[in-house]
């Protein structure tokens, strides 16, 4: 079952590859990731530290990192299919492939590469037919996709997505409502970040939008996540992803994913590669608190 599913996925993947636009090909032609080999190798130890922090180093091992001109591939080894399923079951998110997606996002975040140039391959160490598993995680069609065994078909929880009609009192369609909500969130968060610009250097605030999610890339802020640093605060680099999902009863769910980095500097912020991951050091505890603050900000706006 898992093998045939994977074959289909592989065909679909190569089909998608053919659809890469000329524009992105031109952009990729100008990139040479091999120039930053030293940085990537340094970040690989940070990635290992992150897996250690998650307690997954026993079952998930880093094999190697392939650095090519326009692609960065992380090869991971996992015990077998049962380990892959166990890791997902112990993961605290309802989405079937949340673990794989979070692995990918952390990889991209630490390596500082565009999402479409990064790939993660996870292969099983076990040779038993029932335990063999190959998973590919990559950015395709404006979203992070996990190509591998269908985890939604396993376990007792039914995860099939059913779109039901909205209640009769709502005149707008669900899509329109979602669009308006996303727009409201986009305005609220970007206004908030723009209002928090530091004096010495303009904070930059990029928004990456796709169908049902918003990603904010905010750099060069001080005292935002690390809010109690007093007079002297490190520079922060925040990647905040807000995803809008609807469950089977059309209830709205907002999923937050926050990646924070910090860097030293008094007047001028460090370069992008000069930032360090907050999750791997003493600032880790600030991240959940910050998500609560952002949630409350959005909640207040949505209530009104």
């Amino acid at each position: 079952m898992s093998k045939s599913y994977f074959s289909i996925c592989t065909v679909v993947f190569f089909f998608h590859l053919g659809g890469v636009t000329m524009q992105s090909q031109e952009r990729i032609a100008n990139i040479d990731l091999t120039e930053d080999r030293e940085f990537f190798e340094e970040q690989l130890s940070a990635l290992y530290a992150y897996y250690e922090l998650q307690g997954t180093t026993e079952i998930l091992r880093i094999k190697d990192l392939e650095i090519e001109k326009a692609s960065l591939t992380l090869n991971l080894m996992i015990g077998g299919l049962s380990d892959w399923i166990a890791v997902h079951e112990s993961y605290d998110k309802e989405e079937p492939n949340a673990y794989g997606k979070d692995l990918f996002e952390k990889f991209v975040h630490l390596m500082e590469v565009p999402e479409d140039l990064a790939t993660i391959w996870i292969r099983s160490m076990s040779n038993e037919p029932n335990e063999e598993v190959t998973v590919m995680i990559a950015y395709r069609d404006d979203a992070v996709r996990v190509f591998g065994p269908d985890l939604s078909l396993r376990g007792s929880v039914e995860r099939t997505y059913v779109i039901t009609k909205p209640p009769s009192i709502v005149t707008a369609s669900i899509e329109e409502v979602d669009e308006n909500i996303l727009e409201l969130i986009r305005t609220t968060i970007s206004d908030y970040y723009v209002s928090r610009n530091v004096d010495w250097e303009d904070g930059c605030c990029l928004i990456d939008e796709d169908a049902n999610s918003l990603t904010f890339y905010v750099r060069n802020l001080k005292g935002e996540i690390i809010h109690d640093c007093g007079l002297f605060c490190p520079f922060e680099y925040i990647v905040l992803n807000i995803r809008l999902n609807r469950d089977t009863s059309d209830n709205l769910r907002l999923t937050y994913n926050l990646q924070g980095k910090y860097g030293s500097g008094i007047f001028i912020a460090p370069r992008k590669s000069g930032y360090k991951d907050m999750e791997l050091n003493k600032y880790k505890s600030y991240l959940p608190d910050y998500i609560v603050r952002i949630k409350n900000l959005i909640k207040d706006v949505l209530k009104n």
């Binding site: 030293e38 860097g263 030293s264 500097g265 008094i266 007047f267 460090p270 370069r271 590669s273 000069g274």
Partner: peptide, 10 residues
Amino acid sequence: YALFNFVEWN
């Protein structure tokens, strides 16, 4: 470095 981050750490 400390004031202006004029070069990278390495």
